[in-house]
Design a binder for these strands. Sequence first.
DNA 1: CCTATTACGCAACGCTGTTGCTAAATTCGC
DNA 2: GCGAATTTAGCAACAGCGTTGCGTAATAGG
Lengths: 371, 371
Amino acid sequence: MTRTTADVTFLRGYNQALVMAVGRTVRTFERSTVVDATGLTPQAVSKVIARLTADGLIRPAGVRRPGIGKPAVVYELVPDSRYAIGAHVARRTLRLVLVDLAGAVHHSTVIPLPADFTPGQLLDALSVGIEAITTGAELRSRLTGVGIGMIGPLDHAHGLVRDAHGLRHWHDVPLRELAEAHLGLPVHLDKDVTAGITAEAWRHGATFGDAALIMVESGIGGGFWLGGAAHRGAHTNAGEFGHTVVDLDGPRCVCGRHGCLEVVHLRATEAGDVARAARVLAVGVVNLLQTLDLAHVVLAGADLLRHADVYLPAVERAVRTDVPRADWLAPTVTLSRLGADVIAAGAAMQVLDKHYGIPELAALQAGTRSR
Amino acid sequence: MTRTTADVTFLRGYNQALVMAVGRTVRTFERSTVVDATGLTPQAVSKVIARLTADGLIRPAGVRRPGIGKPAVVYELVPDSRYAIGAHVARRTLRLVLVDLAGAVHHSTVIPLPADFTPGQLLDALSVGIEAITTGAELRSRLTGVGIGMIGPLDHAHGLVRDAHGLRHWHDVPLRELAEAHLGLPVHLDKDVTAGITAEAWRHGATFGDAALIMVESGIGGGFWLGGAAHRGAHTNAGEFGHTVVDLDGPRCVCGRHGCLEVVHLRATEAGDVARAARVLAVGVVNLLQTLDLAHVVLAGADLLRHADVYLPAVERAVRTDVPRADWLAPTVTLSRLGADVIAAGAAMQVLDKHYGIPELAALQAGTRSR
DNA sequence: CCTATTACGCAACGCTGTTGCTAAATTCGC
DNA sequence: GCGAATTTAGCAACAGCGTTGCGTAATAGG
């Protein structure tokens, strides 16, 4: 992990991002709203608002008459001022979404991928799909970039796919570079679950607390938002939550260990016992809470959402009964509102986040030297 | 979680802290060292060094002749320019240490505490012990404050002890305020394991990656350093790592669940099977790695260090054999070099870290509004 | 003794957010 | 109607940050 130097341009970006975060959390806001939320002086907020307005990111949207005194100008985010494309690369499909600055999903398409597809095949599918989405509307100039969320192991800092599980042609593929060259757009590569949790965080703004996205879909993964940023770990490999042992004498897992959450959960699912599968997952979630003390747990993934009526109450119950002092420790438990689009949408929001989100001074990955 | 506003004074503190981090990582350094490490311009580093020298935090320590050209001034940290006191409050003992700015432990004393001690009794023991440590040397003026590390649950943001496990007189005790009034010094209250990992991070400087401190001592806890800062979770309750289920059908734990790491480990210990206990702990460590992808794992705690020759190799082996792609994912595994002083020393370093460490823009706890 | 080289800092600058204060736009009381 | 009170908004000057440009000090080598 390396650390960046801080100069005045950082201040600019940081405080600007704070205002943007307010803008996408509430529908409309005014100067005093931002003052209260950020602690900046009114004058400073005026300056920031002027800059953002000039860039077209926010715009006046009427006035509010406070009863007495000069009316306050009400502002709103301009959702269609910037867009990003998100891609969710799965084993057989490529899902593409178009997301605006407010985090709304505009298009969502699923493109089938050939079995054991190659990097070249993926790149072609990407460019064709993006072409289809962006055609018509001349939003090319407002496209911030393309986010790709996919299974690991991969190296986020270098944009490298190390060994995509179950895909033979994906060993040390510099996907970010390849895609940037092929698409002519900035590309952000990240693990699927990390992209997913970013989707949740982006829509909640700067005050979103520590959270996890639990994803059940051909395996179990977890994406983490800790301390105001996505947690990727030392090698972009955080989130292999399905491969934590919950049953020492359990069945052997594909990873080599015995009794991993994933394999125990799978056995229950195969036996048709959804209730037990949900309870097993809930044990894993409580394990996470004990370890990390999260404020929010978001459930997602096709296999989970299919039985959301079983999983959600099971996790909610465990969180209230199995955590000591649950009265003040229990997190909110919700289903992802983006449904099957979470990963793709989150990948898109990572691109937006990089430009308009709250900047970090710590570069988490070793080897990323900035300046 | 709330976020602080950023102004130019933040820049000052941040870049200053970067230089201080260099200073405590290496024995001596010069301007070019800092330039390389931080990316600041030489001129900016000159300014920072001038300020730090004026404050007495660093001092010139000779010159280096580069063969040709003007000799470079070599600087070093002034370890005895600042001190902090660290307190480790356990069930029957109070351990006090004096730590200097470089992270070296100068005094270490253990004071017995009465069974089921009250807040008043702890405060008295604290003031007597601190008096004893600081007497003689007139370092009162260089004392930055007192750090207290103790078992939870507690509320770091408000300095509140919620319910110290196994202590009857500790429900919602505002220990930080009480101690500040009683001692006349700034007090920092935190969970024991969080203090412990801070000790490791402080000594490693600004480039210390994601890490965990595994503590085995009347229970199993974990302290986390993630993304360049201590991870406390939403309610300062992160680290209850011992209460993660590793054996679904295991024995009932005091926390109410079955097969917690802690109870499974305890059974092995009680049976005298240290090797098995170590293997069980190793399973938990690998679970952590899968979840968080850590760069460093530090082992500590009296019960572990007593059998370090068994635990260390067991964890090292698991980390190399049970993690897929361990060739690049495996973390460093070490024993805490501070031994029994980790918690107390870490608590002291948290105080130093607050003043001279790298500042954060995110206040992790809800309810801490700055400005 | 001169030159090349390296280290260092003064001075001016551009940029941030802050402070002080004035101006604009409204409601309310008379 | 009209001035007073109130609230919002921004211009102007300022302090402080890192940066840039450039001059100066200190050394080794020819």
